[in-house]
Amino acid sequence: MKDGVGAKGKKVANTAMNDEAEEEKKKVTIYIMGKAYEVPAGLTIMKAVEYAGFQYIRGAGCRAGFCGACATVYRKKGDYKLYTALACQTAVEDGMYLTQLPFVPANKAKYDIEKIEVSPNTLIKFYPELVRCVSCNTCTKSCPQDLEVMYYIQAAIRGDIEKVAKLSFDCIQCGLCAIRCPAEIAHYHVAQLARRLYGKYMSPTPKHLLERIKEIESGKFDREMEEIMKMSIEKIKKMYAERDIEGATEARAKAEKD
């Protein structure tokens, strides 16, 4: 997900600098749990709810579209569709009917990843409700990450774990798919198991990672760690800001030159 662009490409606050002043003046009416509030246009749902005087004690997290905690549903005036979104990534529109989902209940199967023997039916074994999928596609339509949820569930049914892992890679576990599913499937838990199985048993072993773990265990970086531990916070901050990042270092040099 890119900064400033909501999951489904909806405009998020302050995308265009020159519109900013005008947006500020404009107010929209939204309905939170049935009650009308006037809020500045251009706010995200989350900010608008807070602007209206509510405080999030659940259903809020990173506020950057990554953690999936602020999954929400809403409708628009005169539109039958039930929309789903991340509250931190979606701008309010005039006439929105809003609420906030604090939590999505979904069973997670118990397994010991070390002991699973992968077979075509492994995912059905842990999540037998998978076979109830009727391909209605509601999960896909509800995904704020625009994943092809239905197709990964279908791949799960036929034991194509690699496909599940790849199609579900950008899942942020918000649970909107699970709450909308008529077959009562907990899609995101299925996908998580698939990714774990894929990582453990199917994807090639990353040699460099194994080597690095060995280096760490042999104490290669112990001295450097000790040095960092003794440093002042200011110095660590400075080091962090000046660290070498691929691409970013060049960009910083260019910005300084300009």
């Binding site: 009727v134 391909s135 596609n137 239905m150 197709y151 279908q154 008529p182």
Partner: peptide, 25 residues
């Protein structure tokens, strides 16, 4: 390239359309 379960077994209930969706898709 893309396909889902066929929706088996075909529903004989005359008012049950959701079970035909997989096939049509």
């Amino acid at each position: 390239e893309k396909w889902t379960c066929c929706g088996t077994y075909f529903s004989l209930a005359k008012d049950d359309l959701v079970h035909h969706i997989a096939s049509i898709r």
